[in-house]
């Protein structure tokens, strides 16, 4: 079970529509962002430059350091489909998970952290892959009914203005996410992940060399 987002950076134009779609769907408060589109700013000197945008959200790590560090068991893995989630009723806002997550800022209050501290609710929040819509979905959207539980996708995927975002279980070859990776590899387009010491992210990013040279988050 490896449900995740696969994002095609050849297409992503950094328009932030995914950020707003997520906020409306999940009622995310002002100043908190369950995903952030990071502009990986150009290297080289004008006009010989390249650049790309990298939408960063919870990477659904296989070794999930957040679950390992969470003292109360609020960070857990969904029994049926293995998605890494946070149970709002159990979380006490102790923020122990924040230093544990390589993709989060220690206080969960500055971009591009993937986990955020919600002050009003005193809980830590993050992208849930809209599990309330997609728990049993293969990510191949049903045009006739976008709420079809077998095919629904998160609103950030549905509304993406470039069709860059794909959802699915990488263990299911028929899922949209798996298919887009397979096609990218066939087309010789690079399939990357955002390396981080001690984490094994499931999220994948597709980027062709002729658009830009891969450099993760621009480190």
């Amino acid at each position: 079970m490896a449900r995740t987002l696969v994002i095609d950076l050849d297409r992503c134009s950094g328009c932030d529509s995914c950020v707003v779609a997520c906020k409306f769907e999940n009622g995310v408060t002002l100043g908190n962002y369950w995903n952030t589109v990071v502009p990986v700013v150009p290297v080289g000197t004008h006009p010989d430059i390249d650049m790309y945008w990298l939408p960063l959200q919870c990477q659904q790590c296989v070794n999930s350091p957040c679950i390992a560090a969470c003292p109360t068991g609020a960070s857990y893995r969904d029994q049926e489909n293995g998605v890494v989630l946070i149970d709002k009723d159990i979380c006490q806002g102790c923020k122990t998970c924040l230093p544990a997550c390589p993709y989060s800022s220690p206080e969960g209050n500055v971009k591009p952290s993937v986990r955020w501290y919600n002050e009003e609710a005193n809980v830590v929040e993050k992208c849930t892959l809209c599990n309330h819509l997609t728990a049993t979905s293969d990510g191949v959207e049903n045009i006739e009914d976008t709420t079809d539980p077998a095919h629904a996708v998160p609103p950030c995927v549905h509304n993406c203005s470039c069709k860059a975002r794909h959802y699915g279980d990488l263990d299911d070859p028929a899922s949209d996410a798996s298919q887009v990776i397979a096609q990218a590899e066939k087309d010789g387009r690079g399939v990357h992940l955002v390396e981080a010491e001690g984490a094994t992210p499931v999220a994948r990013y597709i980027l062709s060399a002729d658009i830009a040279a891969w450099r993760g988050l621009g480190v």
């Binding site: 999940n26 009622g27 995310v28 408060t29 609710a121 809209c130 309330h132 819509l133 709420t147 539980p149």
Partner: peptide
């Protein structure tokens, strides 16, 4: 947003 950020969309 209500106090408890319930996901506004049930499927």
């Amino acid at each position: 947003e209500s106090k408890e950020p319930e996901p506004s969309g049930s499927s």
